[in-house]
Design a binder for these strands. Structure first.
Lengths: 224, 224
DNA sequence: GTCTATAACTAGATAGAC
DNA sequence: GTCTATCTAGTTATAGAC
């Protein structure tokens, strides 16, 4: 029961930050839920902000480790020269993130909401941390996508990968946003493989679209 | 200079909420920046939360009015039976939102960040407000998309429209997220028409993908 | 309508007993 | 390591003068 206090605080803080927001969550709430003393947060982490950083550090690494591990495996399979198919790249990029949301560790969904929040709170030091962890991944995935989609310009690829991240980020926030936007008569399946498959299909087709050119006369639309 | 105090508060609050977050922004900050007295917020709006709601009310309507207006025009053009092309539907859905970000009214970008934040703050009353305004739009756009994509099941269409919203939401948050994730050696063009064109192309191709089926043996991927 | 002053409260952090 | 007690500083909201 020695280290459990620290872990309990980490878990409860993650849940509360995601639920109420960083600013709206007090250390008193956290320590009360974790069954710890108010002073424990400052004892273990030093400050409220350091606690937040510890939460990020605990989760983000796993997703990216999985992504990079899968990419290693695919690249070893493909050998030096061959490009990895786009849909495989999309899948290994997307799947670890989505698995965190539902399956896997409990509290994953809490963390995802917390992560989404960090994008929107620009003042925090967290941005540097998150940016750094993403840099590792993008520096490996971008060349892989470029090889798989040689006909695309760097600019176009850049945007489309962002679109991919956008769809993923949206799906990671869980069904709440969707319930919020949709009439939601449709039942929300918890089948994560089906969601991954749908997302991979959508994104892959989007990535395979022809390069966009704004001609002199206006928009040239090329539809399948 | 009578109504200006109210408007100034609205503007500055929108900017500060977006920049620092709702909880992290104090009425003192807002009134100081707006050149108003601390008590002015409670005088004009009643409370801090009512001020936040007023901000939402001011902006959301414009985007959806534009969308519905464009849809009216396209449906009038197409006549009763004919389906509106997918890329046109995507464009009129996507463009008003993106125009708010850069062009148009100043402070639009602030509001978008604020809107994104509301998705992640589930405790607020704002969700009902936002949901209601989205319902109007989805109830018109969903049948239009269904007509344009008759081969898709309701489930599949439901998900893909969510994917579209996801990409859009991501792009609406501006370039900050992108700067955060990407190595960002690439210069961020402010050409909104080019962004719209790229987004429309990506999404349209994604929407046109074949229906996803998880067969007995695993994932059947159909790539263009 | 706009101000000052202040009430009533809560926050994060820490000192020091155990 | 864990507690209580407390400090300092911040918050929203309001009462009442002008």
């Amino acid at each position: 029961m020695v280290q459990d206090t620290k872990t309990d605080i980490l878990d409860e803080a993650e849940a509360l930050f995601a639920e109420k927001g960083y600013e709206a969550t007090s250390l008193r709430m956290i320590t009360a839920k974790a069954g710890a003393n108010l002073a424990a947060v400052n004892y273990y982490f030093g400050s409220k902000e350091a606690l937040l950083e510890a939460i990020y550090e605990r989760r983000i690494g796993r997703i990216n480790d999985e992504r990079l591990g899968s990419l290693d495996a695919l690249e070893a399979d493909a050998g030096g020269g061959k490009a990895i198919p786009v849909e495989n790249l999309v899948e290994i990029f997307v799947k670890p993130a989505l698995q965190i949301v539902r399956g896997g560790s409990p509290g994953g969904q809490n963390f995802i909401r917390l992560l989404g929040r960090s994008y929107l709170e620009p003042s925090h030091v967290l941005q540097d941390k998150v940016r750094h962890m993403y840099e590792e991944v993008t520096h490996r995935f971008k060349p892989a996508f470029a090889k798989a989609l040689p006909e695309l310009s760097e600019q176009e690829l850049y945007w489309r990968l962002h679109f991919m991240v956008g769809v993923l980020a949206y799906c990671m926030t869980g069904t709440e946003m969707m319930r919020m936007i949709a009439s939601s008569k449709i039942e929300h399946s918890d089948d994560i493989d089906l969601l991954v498959a749908r997302l991979v299909s959508f994104v892959t087709h989007g990535l395979y679209a022809d390069e966009v050119n704004l001609g002199t006369g206006g928009l040239e639309k090329q539809v399948v």
